[in-house]
Design a protein around this nucleic acid. Structure first.
Lengths: 203, 203
DNA sequence: AAATTTGTTAACCAAATGGTTAAACTAATT
DNA sequence: AATTAGTTTAACCATTTGGTTAACAAATTT
């Protein structure tokens, strides 16, 4: 039908770019290295994505739209705070074990270029914590959980879930464990973190 | 006495390099930009520090040796876990409000080059959590705190304290607050985080 | 099957970048 | 005043790097 070959080249490029950008960042990534990893000529990168910047944005947006909707889904479903914490923790840690470079990549690049945030915020599926805030308020009134600022609770949930992936080399060194042991620790956090959180807010 | 001028040039360079490296990272930093910020000729960078790599290492080591000893001090003093949490949280959040780029810089660069860790570990003041681990074990036996893995607790403490600085642009966007409000939130965390932690582990 | 469009490559280019050099400058020592 | 050693600068250099070009190959259309 179309004159395009199947878009396998484009995909190869995107996959290679993902790996390189996510491990080395925008500044550390080299177009030649991406081309090599994709086993194609460097000119193809520009043929399909015009510039390093645009290729980077394709990778970044794909990464973000992988993380955001699920966060949004959990924030806006009808379950209790306790259920939300369990779901979020289990889901997100599982997800990040599969994609360990994603959160660090996103955070690093947002630090580097805060303007990116504005683009993201206008995105349809950008997470919205309004419902979560109301819920916290209600559960505090009902006496289900202790009084706590919804924002602080949200930051705490995020911190406990994400930081161990963002800072893994540092934590590994501080806790003095090898890779395999650290994997076990992360695995255990699927349950440990939600228990910890629930313990912290339950009356 | 000597023919050396006072070492103010060297200091100017290091200060400028700190700012540039900590905001842009090793890969994003430009020697010319550092020279400009230090108001000196680019050749001086090499005269005093030989190479970008060595200048970077000077900055990195200084940054790390600013963070590490205090962590080590708190880990090894004689106070209870609860006291440690209070001290650590208050101290570290205060410190990071003054140096908001430090933790992200260190984490990012350790991710970029995991070999750095080995150098750091052999450093005299590299934090050691042995005593902390024993203490947790004892307090669990005494029934002061709930059963919890010392490693997980340590990771939780670190996450809650450090992540809000590492990921500030992301969190600001998610929680939907401006800079000033975020500062207030961070300020409040000096107390909030230790209350949260203590609540989570107290029987 | 001729013409046209799309996909791919090797060679090339200009700008940026880390690093060097040789000369000039400064200030203390002889 | 001359010497000497450390400091600073402008100009320069080689390499890297993102990006382009022109020719070629492979589909698609007519």
């Amino acid at each position: 039908m179309t004159k395009h070959k199947d878009n396998q080249t484009e995909d190869q490029i995107l996959k290679a770019a993902q790996i390189i950008f996510q491990t080395k960042g925008m500044d550390g990534a080299r177009m030649q290295e991406i081309a090599d990893k994709a086993s194609i000529n460097k000119a193809m990168l520009h043929y399909y994505y015009r510039s390093k910047q645009l290729l980077f944005e394709a990778v970044f947006n794909k990464a973000f739209s992988l993380l955001a909707p699920e966060l949004n889904r959990i924030l806006n479903d009808s379950s209790s705070i306790e259920e939300k914490i369990k779901n979020f923790t289990d889901n997100y840690i599982s997800f990040m074990i599969k994609h360990p470079y994603l959160p660090g990549f996103i955070i690093q690049e947002l630090n580097r270029n805060p303007k990116f945030i504005e683009k993201l915020e206008s995105n349809v599926s950008f997470p919205d914590i309004t419902k979560f805030k109301n819920q916290v308020k209600n559960e505090i009134e009902n006496g289900t959980i202790i009084p706590i600022s919804a924002e602080q609770l949200f930051i705490n949930i995020l911190s406990l879930n994400v930081f161990p992936f963002v800072a893994s080399p540092l934590i590994k060194a501080l806790v003095n464990v090898d890779d395999t042991t650290y994997q076990t620790i992360l695995e255990a956090r699927k349950k440990d973190v939600s228990n910890f959180l629930i313990n912290a807010i339950r009356k």
